[in-house]
């Protein structure tokens, strides 16, 4: 097994300042966390917040650089609902299925959006524009039922008006996590 330090150093030498290079970001993430005990989940959060999911090649590289076997990474990634293994669409539509939303008919809302986008929950549209997912409670229960699109919340929705919801998203085009925390400490 290659030692993590060697790979990290090699990458640094190869691409010292290319901050936009996703490979380099993995090194930064690994360097940020590898000396902190039990920080694999935190490193994966950093990775997913940048790429939108946990690509296999990135997981392999991250594992090598942090000294964590790939099997352990997959063990963790597949256990926690938050981590995605496939690239989601550009606009991730999260329909809240928490209890408060459930009582107010979020299942109908979800079904309507599924019909509107012609995809099932957990799928992306063929053009990779939208990804539809059901989530457990976003904690805005006072505003039920609601969906969140890349973090922007659409609240107090009518459950029979999915068409309007999609229209609003098309107009707003909310972008995902614009301001990342800097990885370099």
């Amino acid at each position: 097994m290659s030692t993590p330090i060697d790979v990290a150093t090699a990458v640094k030498v190869a691409a010292p300042k290319a901050a936009a290079d996703p490979k380099d970001e993995i090194t930064l993430i690994a360097n940020k966390w590898k000396n902190k005990r039990g920080s694999l989940i935190m490193a994966l959060h950093d990775l997913q917040s940048r790429v939108g999911y946990v690509p296999r090649e990135s997981a392999m590289r991250l594992g090598r650089e942090m000294g964590v076997p790939l099997a352990r990474i997959y063990e963790v990634v597949t256990f926690y609902n938050y981590f995605k293994l496939e690239a989601p669409g550009k606009y991730v539509i999260s329909v809240c299925l928490g209890t408060a939303c459930h009582i107010k008919g979020s299942a109908d809302l979800l079904a309507g959006i599924e019909k509107e986008l012609n995809v099932h929950e957990g799928q992306s549209t063929p053009d990779k524009e939208y990804h539809l997912q059901a989530v457990r409670c976003l904690g805005c229960c006072g505003l039920a039922p609601l969906v969140s699109v890349n973090g922007k919340v659409y609240a107090k929705l009518k459950t029979n008006d999915s068409h309007h919801v999609i229209e609003r998203i098309q107009i707003d085009k909310p972008m995902a996590d614009a301001d990342h925390e800097s990885l370099a400490e």
Binding site: L97, G98, A100, R136, C137
Partner: peptide
């Protein structure tokens, strides 16, 4: 880790 769906006290 307020996981109970329909609860948001701790987050608040």
């Amino acid at each position: 880790d307020e996981g109970d769906p329909g609860a948001f006290m701790d987050g608040s």
